[in-house]
Design a protein around this nucleic acid. Structure first.
Lengths: 249, 249
DNA sequence: TAAAATATTGCAAAAAACTGCAATTTATAA
DNA sequence: TTATAAATTGCAGTTTTTTGCAATATTTTA
């Protein structure tokens, strides 16, 4: 088989599936993994596809792919995401709201984890497309351009028809007195519906958000089952949140 | 055997198979591999085919291989997208299925156009978030990772509850006999539902797809109101599609 | 943090390409 | 027809490209 043919096959695979692993290609093409790696490297240089660790993805996909803005915050969010992931049993059904911390969680979800995910968040759905074992169900509705999640009566009604094991509910603001709050009224309605649909409510948030609040209230703190921050669970900053029957991680 | 004949055989082989290896040619033509190598080198210089390590490929194949093809296709898609956009009145309600041609349309939608868009496609929704005057309503459901659109009973039911002015329905394959067809059954169900929800059905497609078909049928050609390709509406290639009461743009 | 998976690098064998050359064929003109 | 020049072809030696492997480094996963 000519090298050109091989590369053509690779391009097709990437076009059809948006992503492909080197071992799959090596298998399919019956050449060593080194060879497909070199091929993919060449195609990457030519700008035909994007090489990633373990395989390749189509350029269209790489576009929407997440971009880490602030390294400092990013580390915190990865830390939170890892803690959050540790709470997800295999074969569970979860709900993920929007937000960059939740996006980080979606990105870090282990590929072996079999899971069903409901989400109204466009970026999170986009990310989860890459996950081989996640069944993703998108909550439809009117798109909020700021929050990049769906909102409105339809979405809220759809949420009322489901119950999930765990809801990972991000929040714009969190305060020991005022609970979870937001700046956007539509978003609050969605979060209320998401919380109602979740047997267990987990709130992942970076510590910067602690002790801040806004005008519209999502829920009281005692609605929250688990609060996850990048801090040590025993940190003093978390003291005001201990009195509400909340697990802190 | 004359050199001329030999080279003609080589040209034919490449035309038929898109590719050929030097050893195959040497075998078939019963001359040394050096000779076919020299032949191929000449044909390459004449621009009849493209010489590659170990053999030769057709020019189309080579073009297909690299970035040029993407740019080439992209131009066609922009052309189609512009024609499609000209059919959208201000303040109309439209439905956009998935596909890269439709994505191009979403990208090129004039920012002044006030519009309501229903879509089950993740990339298109992602794109439309950037549009200042588009109200975007996402059709929720189970995500198909291949097509990046939602599918399944819920999405189809939701579609049955709406009616839009225009539906822009991309298609994987289109043929004058077999109509619109797809490779993926779930996607076909979605497209049927989208067509049912549209007062007017517009099918934007690049000419490469004309006269191709697959096993699952979306609809007959006479269901389509307007067919848009990058070709001139009078082009001969479109003749087979004229008899079905279709506007061609 | 350890272990598993993936990348990188250098290297050597194999395949293919290139070069010069001689034998052969073809073309051309006397 | 014949002599000569030009083109074609195959071969041998050399160079380049491709490919797989192994050792080592890096990244990802558990």
């Amino acid at each position: 088989m000519l090298k050109e043919e091989r590369q053509q096959v690779i391009i097709n695979e990437v076009r059809i599936h948006s992503r492909v692993s080197l071992s799959e290609l090596s298998d399919k093409l019956d050449v060593s993994i080194d060879t497909v790696r070199r091929d993919v490297k060449e195609l990457d240089k030519l700008g035909t596809l994007k090489k990633v660790h373990g395989g390749a993805v189509s350029l269209g996909f790489a576009l929407h792919n997440y971009k880490e803005q602030n390294i400092y915050l990013h580390e915190k969010k990865s830390n939170i995401a890892e803690k959050a992931i540790s709470l997800i049993p295999n074969r569970s059904v979860i709900l993920i709201s929007g937000g960059t911390t939740n996006l980080e969680m979606a990105r870090l979800l282990p590929s072996k984890l079999k899971i069903t995910v409901f989400t109204p968040s466009l970026p999170i759905a986009m990310q989860l497309i890459l996950h081989p074992n996640a069944e993703v169900i998108f909550i439809g509705g009117k798109l909020s351009k700021e929050a990049k999640i769906t909102t409105g009566g339809k979405a809220i009604y759809d949420l009322s028809q489901i119950t999930v094991d765990i809801g990972f509910i991000g929040t714009g603001y969190i305060d020991s007195q005022n609970g979870l709050t937001e700046f956007d009224w539509d978003v609050v309605q969605m979060k209320k519906a998401m919380i109602a649909a979740s047997k267990k409510v987990i709130v992942p948030t970076i510590s910067e958000k602690l002790n801040t609040y806004q005008c519209y209230k999502t829920c009281d703190l005692n609605t929250v089952d688990t609060l996850i921050t990048e801090l040590d669970p025993d940190a003093h900053q978390l003291d005001p949140f201990r009195s509400h029957n909340i697990k802190i991680l």
